[in-house]
Design a protein around this nucleic acid. Structure first.
Lengths: 244, 244
DNA sequence: GAACACCCATAGGTACTACTTATTCAAGAT
DNA sequence: ATCTTGAATAAGTAGTACCTATGGGTGTTC
């Protein structure tokens, strides 16, 4: 099955679907990237004419942005861009928009710090809760990462890396952790795009992934946790070197 | 300043503001609590007549629910409730709706597990990054918790407890952690409401809070982290006893 | 002259209607 | 049995008319 894509996935990127998604796909990033700094007041009429759509469409897009706490709409005033502290920074759409924007590296850093907190705990839980199928998946994915690493195939490496972390988070049995799979995917993708200069992945990281898979399989929660922590702090350190 | 309340806060609870927020405040919880189980198809016309509002209003509410990934709207089909794995469980509104609903205790558990992962790391970072003002705040809040504990004043205890954890998360200097302050507030509130039977807070927890404040003040990251971990695992254990 | 109350212009909020378009389901052709 | 085609349907879009809250300006009062 070739990764079938839901109509919603397209819509979120503003490709398919309704007009309001297109407006959202332009306005969202514009705000998230700081193009319209906090305090800016947007007028519905302006947006209407700027995007060449009806008021209905603009209002729906604004409602969504409001739900993400990016803007606040008030009578007699307009649509005000809120301070960044108000934003729902956990919303996958907001994360994507910000990563696409200006201070990408600052974003990557704070997201990687989050990983450092969450993933080790998730790995520890996964050692207790993973199904035999998930254990097998992890082993296979780690092996494929190793293979891709040897072949210096960065694309394949990324795909398996993302899949690996996603399985760990899902195997933890905690829905909150599981939902961070998308976040991790964005971070890893962003990271690879960032230092495209590197020719091959860090062999040490590969080894750590293999050992995490082994630890989960062996039901060794302590080892799984500390190995995953090593992976994450490694990622954090790497980031500090490349983008101070 | 008496905790001034923004018009948006009201709107989110469906009190003030527009009609669409009222629809959202009814429909959101109905979905999040499982009243409309995943797979259910809602028709816009139905909602329109059920809530006695115009189509415009319903559509805006639906757009917001769609942004939270609670539902998916498709032509010729209707508004379909998505599987829970799709939901944006980090959205504060979704968290609140779910905590108000049926399996509150399962929610509390998965949220507390998240705390166990995040808060210790945040405390460690706070030990490095907290401003003198934040250090002072923590000390004061811990003292007030102790006082409220001795007086068996659960309400005051809750307020200071929430404030304490919020300051730690903010002091970490990581915006992702900072935004989890609201989540922690919901969890603590939910927890207190849950075992209202208890007459006084755990004195051991109080001591731990005081020691966290001291560790942060002393810039001892390792101690701050492990003490905060004790607080969180304590909360988790407590929860396991009360709601197995 | 400062504080207060009042009024009006404004910009978002709501409603209603007409029309468009994608999509499903089914009937009929191959 | 499978593919094509078409009609029914329900969401999407547009445009308009009207409602309503509210910020700021005006005028009055002490």
């Amino acid at each position: 099955m070739p990764q079938q894509e839901s109509p919603r996935d397209q819509r979120e990127r503003g490709e398919g679907g309704g007009l309001h998604s297109r407006v959202l796909a332009e306005l969202g990033p514009a705000i998230a990237s700081g193009e319209h700094p906090p305090g800016t007041v947007l007028r519905i009429d302006d947006l209407e004419s700027r995007y060449g759509v009806s008021r209905t469409v603009v209002r729906e897009a604004v409602r969504v942005l409001e739900a993400m706490h990016l803007v606040e709409s008030r009578r007699r005033v307009g649509v005000t861009v809120l301070r960044t502290e108000e934003w729902n920074v956990f919303d996958p759409a907001v994360i994507r928009w910000r990563l696409a924007g200006a201070d990408r590296s600052r974003q990557l850093k704070s997201l990687t710090t989050l990983r450092t907190a969450v993933e080790p705990v998730a790995a520890g839980l996964a050692a207790d809760a993973a199904t035999p199928g998930q254990c097998r998946e992890l082993t296979v994915l780690a092996a494929e990462m190793a293979a891709a690493g040897r072949a210096a195939d960065l694309d394949a490496y990324l795909v398996h890396d993302i899949a690996f972390h996603r399985v760990v988070l899902e195997a933890s049995g905690n829905e909150m952790f599981a939902r961070l799979g998308d976040v991790v995917a964005e971070v890893l993708t962003g990271r690879t795009e960032h230092h495209v200069m590197f020719t091959a992945p860090d062999p040490e990281a590969v080894t750590l992934h293999v050992r995490v898979a082994e630890a989960v399989r062996a039901r060794d929660a302590v080892a799984a946790e500390s190995l995953m922590r090593e992976i994450c702090v490694g990622a954090l350190r790497e980031l500090d070197i490349l983008a101070p």
